[in-house]
């Protein structure tokens, strides 16, 4: 399964970015290949309007089944993610990506 994280950096040890739309990096962990893919989303800083839908569209193209984030997406982004059939887990805002993944595996994150 492919699992996405909103992150402040590009590695397992970087903190989760609690924001969805303006998260600088989207990390995709592919459990089958054990690879961590990095989507650079830093250009979102230049986007004045609709950061949520824009990031959601980018995420959709990476085809994850699950998204792990902090606060949860706003209404616009949530609509895109819902249509993209991505399940969202929130409450990982104060964790590193690695810690967030472990919590997810232990069913300790809240379904959005």
């Amino acid at each position: 399964m492919r699992i996405a994280f909103t992150s402040q950096g590009s590695t397992w040890n970087d903190p989760i970015d609690p924001r969805f739309g303006r998260a600088p990096y989207l990390l995709i962990y592919d459990e089958e290949t054990d690879k961590l893919e990095v989507i650079d989303n830093t250009a979102i800083n230049q986007v004045a309007h609709g950061a949520g839908p824009e990031t959601a569209r980018k995420l959709f193209q990476a085809k994850p089944k699950v998204l792990i984030t902090g606060n949860g997406p706003g209404g616009n982004a949530a609509r895109v993610l819902e249509n993209a059939n991505i399940t969202i887990y929130i409450g990982a805002g104060s964790l590193t990506v690695e810690q967030a993944y472990k919590k997810y595996k232990n069913n300790e994150l809240k379904n959005y």
Binding site: V47, G50, A51, P53, R57, N76, V80, N83, A84
Partner: peptide, 15 residues
């Protein structure tokens, strides 16, 4: 320019 139209495969979402 405002990400008000998003296409997901065979679906177009308007905001």
């Amino acid at each position: 320019n405002f990400n008000a139209v998003i296409q997901l495969h065979t679906q177009v979402l308007v905001f």
